[in-house]
Design a protein around this nucleic acid. Structure first.
Lengths: 259, 259
DNA sequence: TAGTGGTCTAGACCACAGT
DNA sequence: CTGTGGTCTAGACCACTAC
């Protein structure tokens, strides 16, 4: 085994403000990214790292724990710690808070309340919210825009609780554009789980009109169901995203850990 | 402070095969899920847990580290450790290995090689792969099906390396349906990063024919670019997923940590 | 000042893998 | 058997927070 394995410049400064475990994790990470350690290779045994850097084993283990956590290495009891293969097979798309996303892009976000209505649950809604037919529900329609261009058309339902009606005024609070916050503000239930289903579709006539796009424009349709801690559905909504304005980008791989 | 805070049945068995840190993490987790600790509440200080359960502080810290890792709690130096709010604002969709996914659903996966061609990079491809115009590239077209129903139509490009031509026979290896494995097998470069972009669209005429669907059928289009360790693009592809057969479902929230 | 979490040490015993 | 990672202890000193 090469004693210069981690490179001559990879020393640990125990007096640094940077934690020792962090320094060690970066050293090993660099060995991997720069090819001195390849997928399947064993990294030096913990006791070897203890000797080499004059640090305690718990500190070494904390460094390795960070690397395990980031997916760079894995351990096998009794055998050693090995460099993982890059895992590229899963892509992950994130859909965040659009109010924030739009602002981040330097645009002016807009939330327009197209209307609220008290409705009675039809078959679909009763099924989605697991409530009896004709249960009184609150129905909201929202239009989200950036620089006055309509982007998302949202239809949201929740069981109606007389105590806290939603006033048009309240929608001025942008945090209520978030369905979860809205449900929490309206009812006494507190959503702790969100289920989302993403479909590819084309606009309906109504959606085309609201969004100001042509018929047959492709759209993403996102169905969101919120559940409380008892796993009861407390809200259901359908959001239509203009396909000509949205795309979801995702990076997977080792580099995301390289920062 | 209530000494029965964690419940009377929440004792730690130090002789159990179950690690102490794991038992403690589950106890605290249960306190959160069952409402004894609510978002924003402080969990007992580390030294209190040390005293209460007669275990060392490092073990307590390991338990807390697990909870931090799962997003259930967060720490504030000098103040304490607090229960986090459920984070529902981001949805995450995963798109995995379809060969596996189809098998998991008890269906018969099929990969059909519609053709390979040596092509010269046009403007789009040159841009995507960051190569000069007219560079020789390998072009593959694949049709992925389940129970003989076409589901995904894939077009993939990579810089042509004479050394390792792709034979039709090789495609029999289902792992090569994975673009990353394919590029690794063909070239000498090793993809370590994958960028994917998800679009909502409608089928083109050609896609409609290959997939056996009507014109204007909504589809998901996934653009994938693979990069090697030097951040050079080594492969680019466009996959068309039938919108009437695919939807992406995602759960976000606390329950995913409750297992 | 007292209490909190953050880091680190120098041991210990264990289970598992390979010889 | 030796060497590996997995768990755990009983201290220590530090920086930050709040009073």
């Amino acid at each position: 085994m090469n004693i210069n394995f981690t490179g001559d410049n990879n020393q640990i400064d125990k007096n640094s403000v940077i934690p020792v475990y962090y320094q060690l994790a970066r050293i090993i990470e660099r060995d991997i990214f720069e090819g001195r350690l390849k997928p399947g290779d064993a990294i030096p045994p913990e006791n070897e790292l203890v000797r080499r850097y004059g640090i305690s084993r718990m500190t070494v283990r904390r460094a390795i724990a960070e690397l395990i956590n980031s997916g760079l290495v894995y351990t096998q009891k009794g055998k050693g710690t090995f460099v993982a293969k890059p895992q590229l097979e899963n892509m992950v798309f994130e859909l965040g808070d659009f109010h924030e996303e739009i602002k981040k892009r330097g645009m002016k976000p807009g939330i327009k309340l197209l209307g609220t209505k008290i409705v009675r649950a039809d078959e679909l809604l009763a099924k989605k919210l697991e409530i009896p037919l004709n249960t009184t529900c609150l129905y909201l329609r929202l239009l989200i825009s950036a620089n006055d261009e309509p982007l998302i058309f949202e239809n949201k339902y929740m069981v109606y609780t007389k105590k806290k009606p939603i006033l048009e005024l309240e929608l001025k609070d942008p945090s209520l554009a978030n369905f979860s916050n809205l449900v929490a503000a309206h009812g006494e239930s507190f959503p702790v789980v969100s289920k989302m289903v993403l479909h590819a579709s084309v606009v309906t006539e109504e959606e085309a009109e609201v969004l100001g796009v042509k018929l047959n424009t492709p759209v993403f349709v996102v169905e969101q169901t919120l559940y409380d801690s008892m796993r009861r559905p407390v809200g259901w909504g359908k959001s239509v995203f203009r396909g000509d304005r949205f795309k979801f980008t995702s990076y997977v791989g080792w580099t995301k850990y390289g920062e």
